[in-house]
């Protein structure tokens, strides 16, 4: 019964999709507002990666919201999976102490971990020049931490420090926005000098915000992994 009703609903939606998609031709040039970004982006923001200039400058408010959504997920996960300290300790004692990862995994991850962090940092520092940016770099950094968790299941990151880093980098983002409000009257304005396009020190506030986002996303995703590992036992 439930299956038949669902299939009828899906067929209705599918018909809607077919009709709607037929009105949006695939692969045709239908760029409208974005032409402005493509033509004027480099001059106005100093970033050669137009996607970055859209993400952080023309639509920077979305990105602030997006950072907030990830922050909510990390905080909410901590709240939902929260366990009182005492119970936590007891469970740690009971746990099997002999569980260890294999030698290859431990040695390999020791070798790879700094390189992964370096690569993540490279991605978010060069967000305004090459494909990538804060979110991607942060995800790479978190993957490095995930590797460490697999290799050394006993080790934990310091939750207090990572929480502070999260809120500091969030505050830097909002603070830069408010500075824009002070200097030029608009929230999140690119008020710093734009520099010469295609060099590392260009594009005003964009690299600074991307570095903050990189740290924030890296710590938040690591915190999510940590919570899921620790609290779900």
């Amino acid at each position: 019964m439930r299956r038949i009703v669902s299939i009828i609903i899906l067929i209705i939606i599918a018909v809607g999709f077919i009709f709607a998609f037929s009105k949006i031709p695939f692969g045709k040039d239908k760029i409208n507002v974005a032409n402005y970004y493509i033509k004027k982006g480099i001059k106005q923001t100093g970033a050669v990666n137009i996607v970055t200039s859209v993400v952080l400058n023309y639509r920077g408010f979305d990105t602030l919201g997006e950072v907030t959504v990830l922050f909510i997920a990390a905080v909410g996960l901590g709240a939902v999976l929260f366990v009182e300290r005492k119970i936590q300790k007891n469970m740690d004692d009971k746990e099997d102490k002999t569980k260890r990862a294999s030698l290859i995994l431990r040695t390999g991850s020791r070798l790879l971990f700094p390189l992964i962090l370096l690569f993540g940092a490279y991605i978010f520092v060069h967000g305004h020049l090459t494909p990538g940016g804060g979110f991607q770099g942060g995800a790479i950094i978190a993957s490095g931490f995930l590797l460490m968790y697999l290799a050394f299941p006993k080790q934990r990151i310091n939750k207090k420090t990572s929480g502070l880093a999260e809120s500091l980098s969030g505050l830097i983002f909002v603070g830069i926005g408010l500075l824009g409000l002070v200097f030029s009257g608009y929230f999140l304005t690119n008020f710093l000098p734009k520099g010469i396009p295609n060099t590392l020190f260009s594009a005003g506030i964009i690299p600074i915000i991307y570095i903050a986002i990189g740290f924030k996303v890296g710590f938040e995703l690591t915190g999510i992994i940590d919570d899921l590992l620790e609290r779900s036992r």
């Binding site: 639509r59 408010f61 979305d62 919201g65 997006e66 907030t68 959504v69 909510i72 909410g76 939902v80």
Partner: peptide, 27 residues
């Protein structure tokens, strides 16, 4: 407040995700 439809979606998600977490808050 927003006048942009995608920004509306982002704030809508902020509202929804925080309320999912808060409904489960008593655990």
């Amino acid at each position: 407040l927003t006048g942009d439809i995608f920004n509306l979606f982002v704030f809508f998600e902020i509202l929804c995700i925080s309320s999912y977490a808060l409904v489960a808050y008593n655990k």
